[in-house]
Write a protein that binds this DNA or RNA. Structure first.
Length: 187
DNA sequence: AGTATGATTGCCT
DNA sequence: GGCAATCATACTG
């Protein structure tokens, strides 16, 4: 009997390990999506995390069981997708910053209003739009399936934050053309 | 109640 | 490279 739970075993452990382990796993929403190529960890004791102030209406999902989706509105414009990680109740998550557009490409093109594959899912706001993310996804169980080939993963600085900027908790597939930003120099 | 600030993106010069 | 868009959340008074 196979486990019903999906995702890497690290999903319920340290979110930093989970973020790294998630690279290469395919995330689908309603059959649309592809392999994760870029992700950032946000720990509960991390000043940059939405969970840092403690449980609130917005971040409630983060304090639930791992493997679910935490969705938030960024800059009043973009809906961004996270996978809740860590032991249940700790309030940690992993922001999905980029995917390889593999499944439902036509749908993603239509939702994004763009044809170029590199503009479909390379960036957290783009991922949200391509997957049609919104409040209705909050708390849904993440649809994850394992990588079909190993990835070269590298750790770099997180993007767009002003606190705890020194923590290199952004992980990406070194060989993917679909990451939002390449590391400053190859590591 | 009012204000400042974002885990961003796309269009402008 | 710079900045506007746009609004929920968090914080101040």
């Amino acid at each position: 009997m196979e486990s019903v739970l999906s995702g890497p075993s690290q999903l319920a452990g340290d979110p930093v390990d989970a973020a790294s382990a998630l690279i290469g796993w395919t995330l689908l929403v309603d059959g649309v999506g592809g392999p994760i190529v870029e992700a950032e960890a946000y720990r509960h004791d991390d000043p940059a995390s939405h969970a840092f102030p403690g449980p609130t209406a917005r971040n409630a999902v983060m304090f639930g069981p791992p493997g679910r989706l935490y969705v938030y509105l960024s800059y009043g414009i973009h809906w961004c997708v996270n996978i809740v990680c860590g032991p249940e109740g700790t309030g940690a998550g992993v922001l999905i910053r980029a995917l390889e557009p593999a499944c439902g490409v036509a749908a993603m093109r239509a939702r994004r209003g763009r044809d170029d594959l590199r503009e479909l899912t390379s960036g957290p706001g783009r991922v949200g739009q391509a997957l049609s993310a919104g409040p209705w996804l909050a708390g849904a169980v993440a649809d994850l399936s394992p990588p079909d080939h190993p990835r070269r993963v590298v750790a770099t600085e997180r993007v767009g934050i002003s606190k705890a900027i020194d923590r290199r908790w952004r992980f990406l597939d070194l060989d993917s053309p679909y990451v939002s930003r390449r590391p400053r120099s190859a590591a």
